[in-house]
Amino acid sequence: MDKYVNLIKLSVGSESVDSLIAWQDSYRQRFDDRLPRHVTRMWPKREAEILNGGSIYWVIKGVVQCRQRILRLDEVRGEDGIRRCAIVLDPDVVRTQNALKRPFQGWRYLQPEDTPADLPKSRAQDDALPDDLNRALAEIGVL
């Protein structure tokens, strides 16, 4: 398989995977293609690798909980005229095994071998665990 790389990003303000999905659903209605996107100040230098099969892994409440495949990177300009990168995402949110992640700013590259595994589709709609239990299980590697 060709080489690819992922991104990892804090989903600031999200309380759960469902709240991330709800926010994206309301925000993406602004665009002709109806695809969710995340706008960031920095343009990834490893664009070709990202677009070769990469996903964005979302950290919610200090835990990696889901991912979305990255479809493309679009240039956007704000009202201030500054060039930004819109990371255009597949609307399908794939839940992953939980993995603890310390806070960080912006996004980071995430190698495929360092990514948490996808949950089986049969577990994708399991009821969410309370944050403290979710974090404790992730700490011991159970989820």
Rank of each mutant, 00 (worst) to 15 (best):
D32W: 11
V93E: 04
E47D: 08
P103L: 03
L133Y: 05
Q68T: 09
L100K: 05
Q111Y: 09
R77C: 02
W107T: 03
R102W: 15
V63G: 03
D118Y: 01
Q29Y: 00
K121M: 11
D90L: 14
V88Y: 10
V63D: 06
V76A: 05
R95D: 03
F31L: 10
R77P: 01
M42G: 00
T40V: 15
P44M: 04
Q105G: 09
I50M: 10
W58D: 11
S122Y: 10
A136F: 10
Q65S: 12
D25R: 13
E79G: 14
I50R: 07
R69W: 07
F31R: 14
R84I: 15
Y57N: 04
Q65K: 14
V93N: 04
L89S: 02
R72P: 00
E79V: 09
H38F: 00
V93G: 01
R102C: 08
R83F: 00
Q105D: 13
E47Q: 11
G62W: 03
R69Y: 09
V39A: 01
R108M: 07
M42D: 11
Q24V: 03
D131Q: 02
W107G: 01
D126S: 04
R30E: 11
G106C: 07
L35T: 00
R34P: 00
R108Q: 09
L89Y: 06
E79Q: 12
L35K: 02
N98M: 08
R30N: 13
L73M: 13
V76Q: 11
V59M: 11
R34H: 11
V76F: 09
T96M: 02
H38I: 04
I82Q: 14
Y109D: 06
V64P: 04
G53L: 08
A136V: 10
D92N: 14
A22L: 03
A117C: 08
R69E: 15
A124V: 03
K61S: 02
G53T: 11
P116S: 10
D92P: 04
I87F: 02
I60N: 07
Q29E: 12
D32A: 13
S55R: 09
R41G: 13
Q97M: 07
V59S: 12
R77Y: 05
R108T: 03
V88N: 08
A124H: 08
N98F: 00
E47H: 05
L129W: 14
Q68R: 08
P44I: 06
I87Q: 06
D114S: 04
Q105N: 13
D80C: 00
A136C: 05
S26R: 14
R37W: 11
P44N: 06
D90W: 12
L129H: 06
L73W: 07
P36R: 06
G53E: 09
